[in-house]
Every structure is written in C-alpha cells, then in structure tokens.
Design a binder for these strands. Structure first.
Length: 565
RNA sequence: GCGCCAAUAGCUCAGUAGGAUAGAGCAACUGCCUUCUAAGCAGUAGGUCAGGGGUUCGAAUCCCUUUUGGCGUGCCA
C-alpha cells in the first residue's frame, strides 16, 4: 500500500518544517513558521525530481527575496537518512530535490512486496459505492455510445475498487413505460405484416425501425404461427414484450460479457412499479407539499430545489413518468440498499436531466442526507468514415451496434480506445479502428509486456532467475533511462488516487503508455544479457517490476497482457 | 433565448485544486537490427494554447467577454 510519491512529498514537508526552525534559530529567517507552498514534480529533469514552492509562497509574508528564503531553508535542511540526496535553489526560488537510492530501492521493494496488488490503496475507507452505467434501453441492441459508457463505467468501478471502495456495478433496465409500449407496438406491426402482408398494417409513427424488430417478430411467428392475429391488441402486445424483453436483456448481457463487463445486478424498472415504490415515492413527495396538480397531471415543484423547471411525476393518463421512477430508484439505492455514494454514468444527451435530478435529490423528505449522488457525463462519440461524420440513429435502426464493433475490432483495442477522458468528444474513425496495427497504442503497451516476458525466459535459460529486491544494488541503476522507469513505476498508486478522485479512469491509459515508452527507451539504451553480474541482476529486476506494473494496469483497463506477440 | 461541455502542432489528443523552456502519437524527413522481440529506439521539422480584456512574482490552467462547434431545455427515457 505504499505510495512513494505521497511519502516523498510528506517527507519534504517534514524536512522543510525542520529547516524553518533551524533557519529561524540562526536568524536567517524571521519566523519558524513554514510558509505555504506545494511539492510538485517538475516537467523537466533539469529541475530535480521534486520541487517545493514554499520560498515563493513565503516571499510576501517574510518580506524577503524568495531566492534568499530558499537558500536559508536549504542551509537548514538535514537530508541524512531521507529519500533525498540533494536540494538546491533554482529559478525565482524553487527548491529542487534530488531523490536518493533509498527511495529508488523502496519502489522496487514495494512492487515486490505487493505484487499484483501493487497500486492499491485504502483511501476509500470501504465506502459503499454504486456505479450505474450503460443502462441501455432493452428495446434494441447497444450502440457505439454504449461502448464508451461501458468501458468508462467498468474501469471507473475498477479504479474505485483499487482505491479501497466497496464497489457495486449496476445496469438499470427500462423494462416498463412508454418506450416499452412503443417497442410492443413495433413488434406487433412487424408480426402482423408477416401474417397479413406488408401493406395490411401501418407502422407506428415513432416506432423502432431496426431490423432487430423484424427479427423478433419473425421469432414469435416461427414459434407461435399466426395465433396472435385474432388476439386483442393489449394481450398481444403484452405477450410480445414478455418474450422480447428477456430476449433482448439476455443478448445485452451476452454482448457485455464479450466486452468483459460483468454486473453485480441488472435492476428491473418494473420491480419499482410492482413493489409500489413509485407510488409510495410520489405520495411521500405529495405529503411533504412538493407537488401540485395542473392539467390533470401531478407536477414536482423542482424549482423549489433550485432547478430551472418543474417536472411531471404522473401523467394525466395516470402513468408515472420516468422522472418519478428515477426518484424511487435512487431512494432504493441510497435508503433501500444503503449505498453511501451513487455514481451514474450518462451520455451528454442526459446532462440536463442530471442537473435537475441532482436538485431534486436535495429535497429533505427524500432522506438522502449527506450521501453523495454524482454524475459522470460523457460526451458523444462522433463516428467518422473517410473523413465524414456518420449520422446514427437508434430509432431508424442505422446505428452500428456494440456487437458489430467487436466483430471488427479486438476487445483489447476497443476497451483501450474508448476509455478516453469523459468530458471531451471522442472521434471514432471506422477506417482506422479496423486496422489492428501499430496505429493503436494498445499494441505498443502490450508489446512492452511481451518483450519483458520473452526477455525473462531468455535469461532463465542462461540460469538467471529474477532476483529478490534485497539481493540487488539499486545504485547500479544510475542511467537516466533506468531512473525514468523507476520513477514511472512509483506513480501507479498516485495515478489511481487521482483517477478515483476525478472520475477519470483514462489516466491509467496515459500512465501505461508512458510506462511502456520509458521501458522501450530503457530497453534500447541498456543491455541486460552479457552485462556484469550486478548490472544484469538489477536490470532484470527492473524489467520484471515493469512487467508486474504493466500487468496490474492493464488488468484495471480490462485489457489482456500477452506474454508473446 | 437560457443552460451544460468543449476549442492546444497538418490530424487525433495530453497537459487545468496557477509554476520554470507547452508535450506525445500519427502524417513528413534523417538515422539505428551478424548481440535480450524493429509491433521498438534516436533525431529533424512543426504552436498567436480560438480572439480580446482582467486577477499576480508567475496563466493553456482562475474570472469576464466575443466567436465557433456539440448537446440539452417533452405529460419521451
């Protein structure tokens, strides 16, 4: 559970505290109070391994030149036994620290000791977090947008799990309501067209035009023939959706598993209706004076909670809206099941809902209290083919489905590619994506892993096993490429912490690319086979540590780490 | 109209709880395999960080404003 970045920063703060006391005692500084400042990792190595800005921060209060403050502090520093071998003043007043062998050795120790758990931390404190993601309508196949939401939600859940949260993955199935009604009507129309001819039935205006609807109708017809032609429409549609929904849900589950996404639960909307939770929730809101009636519908006074508009909870025809159901669902998450934090991953086309819904959930009577509801809004995926944007629509059935995509592109490439920063638009080039070559950074990373595995087995044939950290001298790893690898290895716990804090698991993609790049550089610059014994062992240990960290990172991303390529 | 997200190299993108000379991949050009995997490495070239103000020792990063693009603003979900 060691975060060497964190430890180094903490140690610098402690060292500076001592330096302040020392500098004040000698009269070099007017005060023994440590000025405000931060410890950062400089962009260029020329500025040391860590840089402290305290002297810059203290300039105003101490009425001194920051450079002079830095020099006074450095004079009072006692680095003996620390993670640092040197510190010098630079620029306007930065204090640049150089890491010592003790720190580098600690990195290798931590990786060896923690193995496949290296990178993990307990900062989440066991908080119970639900991540709800994809939640695609079961009225049709999942699309390329779901491909993005899928990896985002799944890797976010993985990141939260690695940082000490108790994570639950959930898929919310809209198996009730208007869309399902329309779904039933669409299948009905296709079914009757099969039985009575294409022109005998008009297709519902807002119906689902996809081929999958025709296929469902065909399945029903093959099973039951034309026996539903004479059935009354309501019974008929109920029979159709009773068949089609479980069929589609099973299919979604299958495709998600192909994508290496496994849920703790598929939560059915219909359960909320059947249990009376929706009616109960609307009643609760009404009892607390949060609602009013207008035009025969029940409205929620959402503007009272800071939203820009009110919402209909119950339509004039008596049906509850998705909004009422969603409130009931979130009460179920927080109160019914006791989650401390709920994260909903949504597409940008729902961001308006997210803002208004967050306002709603602050309503005191709902009893959410200080529990957290967060939304991760991901921007749309723009499909590009031959440089032109491809328009897709689920309604008209022209969307590229997740399953089609996985037929063309490896799961590894897909998961790596779609795990982009949530708040930027993602351009997906169909021409590029089908190419399984070096264009895709996933191969670059996997290649590094395969290279190391091959290297280790080659050395094993020469009689060299990967040594234990205590049996190598880290001091021989003194070349810049070696140090760069060690530093990057140390970053994984910190990257995970930041990825969890910012809900941005794509940090791990960037991390792992950089680690692979540093390894490839090291590999080209430093030979292992044929070197002196101590150098060979130390480098072999370094390479093996990279292997472990690459594997751990790729596991989080749900990408395989091949031993041969 | 109002609201949310964005705009960084020719293309795709990093970099934002303010730090030192703004980075990478692709594309272009030059090199590196009789030695551990060349799906790799080294190097060259490429920038008014959309425009304009402001805050300060310091701004791609924070604030204001303009422009451009995506999305939202349903008794759909």
């Amino acid at each position: 559970m060691a975060n060497l970045i964190e430890l180094a920063k903490q140690q610098i703060e402690a060292l500076l505290e001592g330096a302040c006391v020392c500098a004040a005692a000698s009269g070099a500084l007017p005060s023994a109070d440590k000025p405000d400042g931060a410890v950062e990792i400089p962009k260029t190595d020329a500025n040391g391994d860590f840089a402290a800005t305290h002297a810059l921060g203290g300039a105003r209060a101490m009425k001194m030149n920051p450079r002079k403050i830095a020099e006074a502090l450095i004079a009072g520093l006692d680095l003996s036994g620390s993670y640092f071998s040197a510190c010098e003043a630079a620029g306007p007043g930065f204090m640049n620290f150089t890491l010592s062998d003790k720190w580098y050795a600690a990195v290798l120790d931590a990786i060896e000791a923690e193995g496949e758990r290296y990178g993990e931390s307990d900062i989440g404190g066991g908080e119970r977090v639900m991540v709800e993601f994809v939640s695609a309508n079961p009225t049709g196949p999942m699309t390329i947008g779901n491909a993005r939401g899928g990896v985002l939600g799944d890797t976010l859940a993985a990141v939260l799990g690695k940082t000490g949260h108790n994570v639950w993955r959930e898929f919310y199935v809209n198996d009730a309501g208007n869309q399902v009604e329309l779904f039933g009507q669409s299948i009905e129309a296709r079914y009757l067209q099969i039985c009575l001819g294409e022109d005998a039935v008009t297709f519902p205006e807002n119906g689902y035009h996809g081929d999958d609807i025709r296929a469902l109708a065909r399945l029903i017809y093959e099973r039951d023939g034309d026996k539903y032609v004479e059935t009354d429409p309501v019974t008929r549609r109920n029979a159709f959706t009773a068949f089609a929904l479980p069929h589609n849900i099973a299919l979604m589950k299958e495709h998600l598993e192909r994508y290496r996404i496994y849920y703790d639960r598929f939560f059915l909307e219909s359960e909320l209706h059947e249990s009376g939770a929706v009616a109960e929730t609307v009643q609760l809101l009404t009892d607390n004076g949060y609602t009013y009636e207008q035009d025969g519908a029940v409205w929620l006074k959402n503007t009272d909670f800071g939203a820009d508009k009110d919402e209909v909870l119950q339509r004039s025809n008596g049906f509850y809206t998705y909004y009422a159901v969603d409130i009931a669902y979130h009460r179920n998450k927080f109160i019914g099941r006791g989650f401390d934090r709920v994260i909903d991953v949504l597409g940008a086309d729902h961001h308006g809902h997210a803002i208004r819904f967050k306002a709603t959930m602050t309503a005191p009577a709902l009893g959410i209290g200080d529990k957290t509801l967060d939304f991760v809004i991901m921007q749309m995926v723009r499909l590009v083919r031959d440089g032109e944007t491809v328009k897709v629509s689920k309604r008209t059935g022209k969307a590229l489905t997740l399953n089609d995509l996985l037929d063309e592109i490896s799961v590894d490439a897909c998961r790596f590619f779609f795990n982009a920063k949530p708040d930027t638009h993602l351009e997906f080039d169909l021409g590029l994506a089908v190419r399984q070559d070096s264009e895709n950074p996933v191969y670059y990373v996997q290649y590094a892993h395969a290279r190391i595995c091959s290297l280790i087995s080659a050395l094993a044939e020469d009689g060299y096993a990967v040594p234990s950290a205590k049996d190598i001298d880290v001091a021989v790893l003194k070349e810049a490429p070696e140090r760069d690898v060690l530093k990057q290895l140390s970053m994984l716990p910190e990257e995970l912490r930041l990825a969890a804090r910012d809900y941005d698991p794509s940090r791990i993609n960037r991390y792992v690319i950089e680690l692979a790049a540093r390894f490839h550089r090291f590999y080209n610059a430093c030979r292992i086979k044929g070197e002196a014994d101590d150098v060979l062992k130390a480098r072999l240990k370094l390479a093996d540590s990279v292997r472990i960290v690459l594997k751990n990172s790729l596991d989080i991303l749900g990408v395989s780490a091949p031993e041969k390529m």
